[in-house]
Design a protein around this nucleic acid. Structure first.
Lengths: 179, 179, 179, 179
DNA sequence: TATGAATGAGGTTTCATTCAT
DNA sequence: CATGAATGAAACCTCATTCAT
């Protein structure tokens, strides 16, 4: 494991992510973040303005990193290939940034978090629709809606640690779509 | 609609449920509950001891009511019939007690709430397993796990108001199981 | 001197008035008020909402009291009589409520305080104008403006304790107007 | 208007004067001064030690400049001439250094500011007394006291922008003294 | 049963100031 | 001379909870 010396700012970000993800945003005080990051409480406010802005920063930079890592996500070789990729996406996301997705799962009622996630996931919808159309599913819109719900459910449950056998589940879903 | 005169205690319970469901437990102060219920803040503590006990009371009595309404839920006529009932369960639950399920959805990280829900839903698992076995699914355990996740996802999304076409979705799922 | 038992709320008001008047609003912390009033800091906020509302309460109730005590202020028997009353007003006001006027003097840049004072003093203007007109002063408007400035100066300086010989000064001013 | 390139130190002084005068000393943070002066906050402390010393510097150099500009103020040609000069002094002061006098007006409770102003204005008193004596006023001390209060009131009100017709007012006062 | 009065603990945030570079 | 990074202290305020009546 790489032992990097983090700048104080990065240490705050990392610590806050960890605490927000594990205890929730409201249940984590700035004092606690400061203590765990071995930093003065005032520094949090110097760097991020206020507690909510700190959260927003974490969310934004989280999605930025995710987008970089999963640029090719949308590449469409074939319908079946795309479906497969989408079904396997949750496991990959959570494996890459487990704390970030755990936080996202907790923030399902935070308006900024929701809107960022929608922005991230919305582009998938039309491609999924096209895939189901190509595969001649009788109700492609409904199929799309359902699969998106399933995908959403999968990363949320994986992020929480509720799922032990993610790959098996993914395989089952793939089989249901004849992949 | 029935216009009942509520006792103060019931008024508190109803108001708290509404606020907890819509704004979240931590974001709702006892002061706010008291104001909206037109009751003194102290009365909340006289009746329920503390804020967390109030929440626990709401959860307990919620599941009690749900169990009464859905006693027959577990009756097993045939495998297909049972699957159908389970798939349609989310819509029925949410239609019956929308605020309660909205609250439950928000409480996915509250330990008491989680354990109560598990207690409520766990009996379904073996029956579902038996159904999939009878229907000769090759991996009945995995199928059970997946369907339970789907059912869970459905009531959560319906409770949040994220799903407009619940019955269509249910029908789609039924078709996927050949029902 | 009457030794009344004050309610906690009244004690807060009295203490805050004293501290605001002597040290200034910004230089007085709610903690300090609470300590001197032998009351918890939280009680200040329970009773008045926030620090500024406490100040506003003090100002409002101060002017209410002043208006009660000086109802007859505006009665107009004769021009000379009215001028005399106005010239003697500052001493009377400050003698009645020394702390309140000391506070007002400090608040000359607080918008609410200013507007309240204007409301209190504005009715004097037209009557003063009429008096100067009756006395055939060649520039009654200008005379009114000047006398109002002088009156304002007098209560401010008296409230601060800057004037030792208020009655002599008043007499001098009276003589200047031939009273 | 001269467009000088200000040194950083002068820029801080000018900016601080402006903010202190318009918003008050306590309501102006060093952060705000630094931002508006386009300078690091630390530089303020390097140059002036602390916030109060910055204020003191502004006051001192303000009075120094005022004294230079109004050296001849005390020259005594005749009693009437001196009274006239004193009555017109407020307008001249404020016209010369509007921000400085606005600041002074706000600082009437700051001990250093008060003492500096007293040092500035005290020499006027004996001369004024002599003038009233020469003009055979029956109570020259009282007249002196009153006129000094009026002069003080005039520059304060003008500095605040409360007086629109300063010259008319000055003329009225002159007439009252038969000038 | 019901409440108004009261509070201790803790929350977020701002501020003037220091220090290494 | 100039700054960016950092902080301790203290500010205002909210909250769940207690208690006498």
């Amino acid at each position: 494991m790489k032992e990097t010396v983090l700048s104080r700012k990065e240490k705050i970000l990392q610590t806050a992510l960890q605490l927000f993800a594990n205890k929730g945003y409201l249940d984590t005080s700035t004092k606690e973040i400061a203590a765990k990051a071995e930093v003065s409480e005032a520094l949090i406010f110097r760097h991020f303005g206020n507690k909510d802005a700190l959260l927003v920063h974490i969310i934004k930079s989280g999605y930025r990193k995710v987008l970089l890592h999963h640029k090719g996500m949308m590449s469409y070789v074939s319908a079946k290939d795309f479906l497969k990729k989408m079904i396997q996406l949750p496991s990959k996301l959570v494996a890459d940034e487990p704390l970030f997705w755990k936080l996202q799962e907790r923030l399902s009622h935070h308006s900024f978090s929701r809107s960022q996630h929608e922005q991230f996931i919305k582009p998938v919808q039309p491609v999924l629709l096209r895939a189901f159309q190509e595969l001649a599913y009788p109700e492609p819109e409904l199929e799309t809606q359902f699969l998106m719900l399933v995908i959403d459910m999968l990363w949320k449950r994986e992020a929480c640690g509720d799922i032990k056998n993610a790959s098996e589940l993914a395989r089952l879903v793939e089989e249901k779509y004849g992949l």
